[in-house]
């Protein structure tokens, strides 16, 4: 029971760490944003896994159904996805502006240019 019972949460942890690794290890701003959305999806998965009831069905009223999965996490995640795309778009817009100003989207090159200017 312990192994099967927590399999979903382990996947969540693996996904979360993959996203985290992409965010801290990569230099490229776009790749970081993708990593951030992987991280985000892992959180969605965590919430949805919590809301699942074994033997339950989707939370739409139907005759002859006893158990529904918990609809509350679904609502929260539904809004979170849309907010996620909004922030992703804003981040990408920032990346576009950074590319126009610095001519690159690699973080270390941006830092190098900043230091050159400071000297």
């Amino acid at each position: 029971m312990s192994i099967v019972g927590h399999y979903n949460y382990w996947i969540v942890a693996v996904l979360m760490m993959t996203g985290f690794y992409i965010v801290i290890a990569s230099n490229n701003l776009i790749k970081r944003l993708v990593g951030l959305s992987v991280f985000q999806t892992s959180v969605f998965l965590l919430y949805i896994s919590m809301g699942k009831i074994g033997g339950g069905t989707a939370p739409i009223v139907a005759a002859g159904v006893k158990h529904y999965s918990n609809p509350l996490p679904h609502v929260l995640i539904l809004t979170a996805i849309v907010v996620g795309i909004a922030t992703l778009a804003l981040g990408l817009a920032l990346v576009v502006r950074i590319h126009e100003t610095y001519g690159t989207i690699e973080e270390d090159e941006i830092h190098a240019q900043d230091e050159e200017e400071a000297l």
Binding site: A58, I60, L78, T79, I81, V82
Partner: peptide
């Protein structure tokens, strides 16, 4: 109201 869907999905 009756099936999956709503404003967010429709807009997208």
């Amino acid at each position: 109201d009756y099936g999956p869907g709503g404003g967010f999905q429709a807009g997208v």
